[in-house]
């Protein structure tokens, strides 16, 4: 999953310094907790949204290009969609675990 987010980040080499963090989901439960990973994902979504807003604003006052704005918008959409999918999978996994007989 970290590589997917890395791919989304690399997709647009936009002039805006993107502060998105590549979220890492620990393999064996060691390291960052799930909660921390989820927080990273949410921050990514917020950051990509803010980047898109900035890119569109740059497009409007002609300080930036149209294509950069379009790419930034697509990145924001993909980040959101990916994050939602991850959340869905996590919720599903949680429910699966809860259903297991002790």
């Amino acid at each position: 999953m970290s590589s997917t987010l890395g791919a989304i980040n690399a997709f647009g080499k936009d002039p805006i310094a993107s502060k998105a963090k590549a979220a890492t989901v620990p393999e064996g439960g060691v390291g960052e907790s799930f909660g921390q990973s989820l927080m990273n994902l949410v921050e990514n979504v917020e950051q990509s949204g803010a980047d898109a807003n900035q890119a569109v604003s740059n497009m409007l006052d002609k300080s930036g290009d149209v294509h950069d704005a379009m790419i930034a918008l697509q990145r924001a959409e993909m980040t959101l969609q990916l994050t939602v999918q991850i959340r869905n999978k996590l919720v599903q996994a949680y429910q699966d675990v809860m259903r297991m007989p002790v």
Binding site: G49, A52, V56, M59, L60, V66, A69, M70, L73, Q74, A76, E77, L80
Partner: peptide
């Protein structure tokens, strides 16, 4: 350009 950006924001 503006219409496409606005449509993208709506979609989001």
């Amino acid at each position: 350009a503006a219409q496409t950006a606005l449509a993208a924001k709506f979609r989001l």
